[in-house]
Write a protein that binds this DNA or RNA. Structure first.
Length: 548
RNA sequence: GCGCUUGUAGCUCAGUUGGAUAGAGCAACGGACUUCUAAUCCGUAGGUCGCGGGUUCGAAUCCUGCCAAGCGCGCCA
């Protein structure tokens, strides 16, 4: 409404609207700079040939009044600051209470379909903390996108074909022989999986299948070991994710890509679009037609497709399934892969931005201030399961999501599990629990929360109350930004700040026993705060306890 | 060598489609519980936004050159 007003004024000034910056409103950053502010006068000063301050004053003088706006000021080099009136406060709280669990929903997705593919770890070992971060970030992104009006599907791509799986089978097979004191017959492969879980798998095989594989050629028994180990590990992964609160709609098997149809069909599409060619006995993708720096092999001269080829086929399959946007969550070490994948997507006839790649940086585990060293190959890694068992699902999710996903994360195990002042998870949850505590006490005293429509919220005038209402009202914008930027950490920060605003309010003012009118208004404010805290925590997949 | 990411308070990090006096938490120091949970709050102190140029009314943010860290540059997966 305010934008339109300003726009009209610009028109009245007799200067055409086009080729001029749009009017932008943003929230005031600090006390005295208004609830909303615009730099429009500064943007237009050049076009008008006047000083920004003069332009600002003229705009203000032409602004119509609004019941929501208490006053308008010109400040600084030419900012126009809007101060909102009390009726706006009342309306905000009523609106939140009316929406309840749906407050914060926005429709930037507009019902479009998006697929989030994440974790996608090889089933060659249990999930470790790095996967855990990807799981948390992917899951929270999916929740946020859904809240922002996207139709979301979550997918796990199972790398169940290829050399790594064979290596897993051979590792297990070797351990099986080793347990039977016949290790010299099946030497442990170089670069094999050395983790203790391989012994567990081998022992299980021995228990259920006996020693029947000992007398069999290695080649013959290998498929069993490979299939068995892969299946059991995948089951474990599924269980870990489930216990971590992460669900998938689709578990997509890499093997299913090699059905003799998908890769050739993908090649046909690329050739038809003019982006595949033969050279040196191999088939190539013309990645340099886009922003990649070299062309890439699709089919080797020995006839075998590359990993990249199956990845293109996979992404073609995704788009064929009708998604408007596809999000891949990758470990940051794969960043060099992005240009060619984006190129492939364009070669398939999609826009570059239809594929979004979210990079997850490495996690640095800290215990006692010391870095916990990890390496998958040596089998020395901390599993997601261990972290969950040690610090709990809520703290684990919170810590994984608290930083921008593309920056390194220090995960302090001692801090995460400490039920102390320093732990930000408890800080947020405690705000929610405190509000419930107020309601419990209110009930004990026979006080009920009034109906929002009948209450007078204009009695909320204290700075802490106003700050809290402003924070509450910003939630939908935060959801929208988090969705647009695929930035779960924004919600973490928002929840933390909101909790802080509530704690400040709580410490400065009493809710109960301050007179019926004020008490009612504060109960409604508390309920609105509880609602938004719960909604934010729900986006993070973190519980909102009633008691701590 | 080329490319990507990062560099903000002692530490860990927000802020990066150009806006006003760069913000939190931890650590340090000083305060606040007869009351709805002190797992909280209030205050003090802490900064050449890696360094140098440039663009403009205005730069942590954009451009450019350096420096440092991490990660990539296969007919591997």
């Amino acid at each position: 409404m305010l934008e339109i007003s300003i726009g009209k004024i610009a028109c009245e000034k007799g200067i055409p609207l086009e080729a001029r910056p749009l009017v932008e409103l943003e929230r005031g950053r600090r006390e005295g700079q208004g609830d909303w502010a615009t730099n429009a006068a500064m943007q237009w000063a050049r076009t008008f040939g006047e000083k920004p301050l003069d332009v600002a004053r003229r705009i203000v003088s032409l602004l119509p009044g609004s019941p929501l706006v208490e006053r308008v000021e010109v400040a600084g080099p030419g900012f126009i600051n809007f101060f909102l009136s009390r009726s706006w406060m009342t309306g905000t709280v009523e609106h939140i209470l009316g929406c309840g669990p749906d407050f914060g929903r926005v429709n930037s997705g507009g019902g479009r379909r998006v697929q989030v593919e994440f974790v996608s770890a090889n089933p060659t070992g249990p999930l470790h903390v790095g996967h855990g971060r990807g799981a948390a970030v992917g899951d929270i992104c999916a929740r946020i996108l859904s809240f922002a009006g996207w139709k979301v599907e979550r997918e796990y791509y199972i790398n169940d074909a290829g050399l790594q799986m064979e290596l897993l089978g051979r590792s297990t097979q070797s351990r099986y022989f080793e347990i039977c004191d016949r290790s010299e017959e099946a030497p442990f492969p170089e670069d094999g999986y050395k983790g203790g879980y391989i012994f567990d798998l081998a022992r299980n095989v021995l228990d259920s299948e006996g020693e029947r594989f000992l007398g069999m050629p290695l080649k013959e028994s290998l498929p069993f070991f490979t299939e068995y180990a892969g299946r059991v590990i995948l089951e474990g992964i599924k269980k870990d994710l489930e216990d971590f609160g992460v669900k998938f709609n689709v578990w997509f098997s890499e093997k299913s890509l090699y059905d003799g149809v998908r890769v050739p069909s993908m090649l046909e599409t690329l050739k038809k679009n003019g982006f595949a060619f033969d050279a040196d006995g191999a088939t190539w993708f013309k990645a340099t037609a886009f922003s990649d720096d070299k062309d890439r092999v699709l089919i080797r001269s020995n006839g075998a497709p590359t990993y990249f080829a199956s990845d293109i086929a996979y992404h073609k399959d995704k788009f064929d399934r009708g998604f408007d946007m596809v999000i891949d969550v990758w470990g940051a070490d794969h960043h060099g892969y992005i240009p060619r994948m984006k190129a492939a997507v364009q070669a398939l006839g999609r826009k570059e931005e239809d594929l979004q790649v979210l990079l997850i940086q490495f996690v640095n585990l800290l215990r006692g201030g010391e870095q916990v060293s990890m390496s998958t190959r040596s089998g020395e890694f901390v599993t997601l399961r261990e972290v969950i068992d040690e610090v709990g699902v809520n703290a684990t999710r919170y810590f994984f999501a608290m930083r921008r996903s593309d920056s390194h994360l220090d995960f302090d195990l001692d801090l995460a599990k400490s039920a102390s002042t320093d732990n930000p998870v408890y800080y947020v949850q405690y705000a929610h629990a405190r509000i419930h505590s107020i309601f419990r006490e209110a009930t004990a005293r026979g006080i009920t929360v009034p109906d929002p429509s009948g209450a007078d919220l204009s009695v909320l005038v204290e700075p802490e109350e106003i700050a809290l209402v402003k924070r509450l009202s910003a939630f939908p914008e935060e959801v929208e930004k988090a969705a647009n930027d695929l930035a779960p950490h924004r919600i973490v920060f928002y929840a933390y700040d909101l909790a802080g605003d509530f704690h400040s309010f709580y410490n400065a003012h009493r809710v109960l026993g301050v007179g019926a009118e004020l008490e009612g208004a504060r109960l409604l404010l508390a309920e609105a705060s509880r609602t938004v805290l719960a909604n934010a925590l729900s986006l993070l997949g973190i519980s909102a306890p009633e008691k701590m």
